[in-house]
Design a protein around this nucleic acid. Structure first.
Lengths: 214, 214
DNA sequence: CCAGAAATTGACTTCGAGGCAATAATTTTG
DNA sequence: CAAAATTATTGCCTCGAAGTCAATTTCTGG
């Protein structure tokens, strides 16, 4: 599946040939742009509602050109999912390193994650479209997603244990919060009136209210 | 678009011919089952990930048979959207009639709405899949959806005005709450371990925590 | 400025799924 | 029970979009 792309790079990767390196850089730069643009479209309009023609058009190339960078449409979706999950894991790591209490970690996690997926770089987070994955990819993504969810639940349990979070059902609570976040891809755009910071601040505020014990 | 179906019913609709009425009833019963089943599948797996073959199979008929009850796939989606919105409007009406304060109304709205869409009857709420609507239908649904959102925001403003809700951004808050609710279609099933009541209770609890002024 | 590699294109094939017309099966009614 | 209306089915057609490939253009190093 990803053979095509990796095989095409790599040839004479001698470090001193800056020109060749430029080629490689160009390749992954363009590939990145493709994934970003496609992912943005997928997030906003849905996987099946977005044809590769559409994506190609916004990138000012033909559909066929895309296939030089990617083996098929499914690969694009898969990689987008992986990146989204990378963002999640990073946010999780950050929150665990910088938060003291359970509540603090939860709020940091949400803040970081929302800011990431709303930033120019990350605005292509494909958080729905799970069912458009073919079964093998679905298994991989599903596993990672579960892991993230369990981590999130653990933060909540931690908060309940240390007294910073009131008694709530961790599983349901995570579902609801993730719903709020995942739904963002349906309405948030970087061109809209609100910045990612504003959005993150409001959500963190609501979550804190919802969870803080008193 | 809906000509076919409405035209086919209605003939000799004389009230005293109970047999004919049974026919009509059968028709709309079956049609209802079709919409419900299709909607459930759309909600769970997505519109484009659900073929009418699939739907037909679970109903033990052939794909073509469905076309007796419905003009095309798009009509199914449209009707499901309309029903979801009906549920929303009903919940809204209920909350406005039975709630005193802004906060009370909000909690009643959410409670009622969640209970409805999780109930056997309403488990087919198609809340995503907006973009799969063709433009004309999209306009109609979009208008109704906006109206609902504005109503919801108004409840929040009302709550802020009467002092039961703390200062939050009504628009963003509605987006987040609707995200939590809409995302439910992705994980909730009536066969799962949780009842609609439990889910509704937890969400209402969280929302109350998030909004109540103190 | 040339050779060869990289990138892009246009034209083509394939395929899944929606949709339809004719037909068969079933049920109702006289 | 036969005729008529209703319901379901079979098989076919179409269409949109994914994906392929030989041919061509664009780059890049020498």
């Amino acid at each position: 599946m990803k053979k095509a792309s990796t095989a095409r790079r790599g040839r004479h990767a001698s470090a001193w040939k800056s020109v060749v390196l430029n080629r490689e850089q160009q390749f992954s730069l363009k590939r990145g742009a493709l994934l970003r643009e496609a992912g943005r479209a997928f997030s906003l309009r849905g996987y099946h509602n977005t044809s590769l023609e559409d994506v190609a058009k916004t990138l000012d190339v033909t559909k066929a050109a895309l296939y030089y960078y990617v083996t098929n449409k499914q690969e694009i979706l898969f990689e987008c999912h992986m990146m989204s999950l990378d963002f999640g894991d990073e946010a999780m790591k950050y929150s665990e390193e910088h938060g003291k209490t359970g509540l603090e970690k939860i709020l940091l996690l949400i803040d970081k994650y929302v800011k990431t997926i709303t930033s120019e770089m990350g605005s292509f987070a494909v958080l729905g479209e799970y069912d458009a994955l073919e079964s093998q990819n679905k298994a991989i993504i599903g596993k990672r997603r579960d892991k993230f969810d369990r981590g999130f639940r653990k933060l909540i349990s931690e908060g309940i244990a240390d007294g910073t979070v009131r008694a709530v059902d961790p599983k349901l609570t995570v579902f609801f919060f993730m719903g709020s976040i995942n739904w963002m891809t349906r309405w948030f755009t970087t061109e809209g009136p609100l910045t990612g910071e504003q959005v993150a601040r409001q959500l963190v505020d609501l979550v804190e209210g919802a969870l803080r014990s008193r």
